[in-house]
């Protein structure tokens, strides 16, 4: 299936390609994301099961002893799933209060923190752990309010939050395009993590626009998605030339060949 046909109709389908072979695991994307999106620092950041990292870098290895050990990294933002049809992401379909929404124009899964009741059903529904619950009041020690990004509202305790593909940057780009009478260009809308990556491993853009680099990279046979066969139909692609890395990206039965099974579910409901 061609890239364009994978997603429902809509003007844009913003997505990402992350080159796992280029990623060094430095974590600059994580830091840039926290700073851009006003993710606070908790008193105890060692409890990674409760801290908030919209862009989390997973380290994986091939499980072989030294000297054959190889390490790779999966930076994981929200993957902005679409499911089998438009609105059918694992999370949007389950939220009782319509506090998370699938934008038909951009394909971005949004979160409305002021409407979230904190039931955490979406957290349980997401297989990527891309959704974070605010277990604590974020402490903002005096002075730390100054570097806050005015374009993003900080979240309150008791709600769920997640990566928005820096949606505020898209709004800014749209404003710019409106004023100049043009269109939103590829470089007008880039996420903070993409800009921060020193090795250029992250490429962001409109998967629907064949002129965007991201659309070309995502169409490559070396591109794949995490847990593709569950049918989440997400928009964050990874790329690697190493077979073992690719095998780690999905669940396989023992006799199955890596990358050769089609998405079988697609959320029939």
């Amino acid at each position: 299936m061609s890239l364009a046909d994978r997603y429902s109709a809509g003007e844009h389908r913003f997505g990402m390609v992350i080159d796992v072979d280029k990623c060094t695991g430095c974590g600059a994307c994580t830091v840039a994301c926290m700073s851009e999106n006003n993710v606070g620092v908790l008193f105890d950041e060692t409890d990674k099961l409760r801290s908030i990292t919209w862009m989390r870098v997973y380290q994986i290895d091939n499980g072989r002893p030294f000297p054959e050990t190889q390490v790779a990294f999966f930076p994981r933002p929200c993957l902005h799933c679409e499911g089998s049809h438009g609105q059918h992401t694992p999370c949007v379909s389950v939220c009782p209060a319509t506090a998370t929404d699938y934008d038909e124009h951009t394909g971005i899964v949004s979160q409305i923190p002021t409407r979230c009741i904190g039931c955490r059903y979406c957290v349980g529904a997401c297989p990527y752990h891309a959704r974070y619950f605010n277990w604590f009041d974020t402490p903002w020690p005096s002075g730390l309010e100054r570097p806050l990004n005015p374009a993003v509202a900080p979240r309150m305790r008791g709600v769920v939050e997640k990566c928005t593909f820096c949606y505020h940057r898209f709004q800014r780009a749209k404003n710019k395009a409106f004023l100049s009478g043009g269109k939103v260009e590829e470089m007008d809308y880039q996420t903070a993590c993409t800009e921060a990556c020193p090795s250029g491993a992250i490429t962001f853009g409109d998967l629907r626009n064949p002129n965007h680099k991201v659309a070309q990279l995502a169409a490559s046979p070396e591109a794949f998605r995490l847990l593709e066969r569950l049918g989440t139909n997400n928009k964050v692609y990874y790329r690697t030339s190493r077979e073992w890395v690719r095998r780690k990206a999905d669940n396989y039965l023992q006799d199955e060949k890596t990358g050769q099974v089609a998405a079988s579910q697609g959320g029939g409901h």
Binding site: A97, C116, M156
Partner: peptide
């Protein structure tokens, strides 16, 4: 159990009729 008990009524007011949890509520 919900993180924002004062907003419990949002599940009714802003109901997402496609969610099983809405039906439960």
């Amino acid at each position: 159990d919900i993180g924002q008990p004062a907003r419990g009524w949002f599940g009714f007011w802003h109901a997402n009729v496609h969610s099983m949890l809405t039906e439960v509520m």
